[in-house]
Amino acid sequence: MSGRGDSEIPDVEVSDVGDPAEDARRARWLAAGTGALLALAGLAASALRFAGSAPALVPAAYAVGALACALGSVLGSRGRTRRALWLLVAGAMVMALGDQFD
């Protein structure tokens, strides 16, 4: 028995490996789109909470979180995807923390 049968791992073709430039472009678009979506959601939530009877800290937290997400979107579109990711996480956490005060 040579050990070669159906369990053999197929060779990886060079064409199967992703293009690094395409991966970077996809990461930039994803960071920019996610940041813009979170910023718009934060601004909409801020406007809704401002119009309601929530304490002033709640709409301010949503607005600050939306600002952080918008900045993350800008950084992501410029290729700073790692920093953009951390800003998006921080912005979403600020919005979630502001929601706890309601």
Rank of each mutant, 00 (worst) to 15 (best):
E13S: 08
R78Q: 06
L71G: 03
A63K: 03
G76M: 02
M1F: 11
V58G: 02
E8P: 07
A90W: 01
L48H: 15
R83I: 00
G98T: 14
R25S: 07
A39S: 07
A60P: 08
G18F: 03
S73C: 12
E13R: 11
A63Q: 03
M1E: 14
A21K: 13
D19Y: 12
A92E: 07
D11G: 14
L57E: 13
L88H: 10
P10T: 10
R26L: 10
R83D: 01
G72Y: 00
V94M: 14
L48F: 13
V12E: 06
A45V: 07
M1A: 13
V94A: 13
R28D: 07
V74K: 01
R80M: 04
G52I: 12
L87A: 01
L97W: 06
A92Y: 10
A47C: 13
M93E: 02
L38I: 07
V94P: 01
R82N: 10
D6N: 10
W29K: 10
G18E: 04
A66V: 07
A51E: 11
A21V: 10
V74N: 04
T81Q: 02
A66Y: 06
E13P: 01
V58A: 03
A90F: 03
A63I: 03
A41I: 05
A70L: 06
G33V: 09
A63G: 10
E8V: 08
G33E: 02
R83H: 04
V74A: 09
A47V: 07
I9T: 12
A32I: 01
V17Y: 13
S73I: 05
A45G: 05
G98N: 14
D23Y: 07
D6C: 11
W86H: 04
Y62F: 09
P59Y: 09
R4S: 14
C69V: 05
A39Y: 00
V58W: 01
A84T: 00
V89Y: 02
E13G: 05
A21T: 04
G5K: 15
A44T: 14
A44K: 14
V58P: 01
F50V: 15
S2H: 11
G72S: 04
R26A: 13
D11Y: 15
A68C: 12
R49Q: 09
W86T: 01
A60R: 15
S15E: 03
R4T: 12
G3M: 06
A60S: 11
D23T: 05
A92K: 05
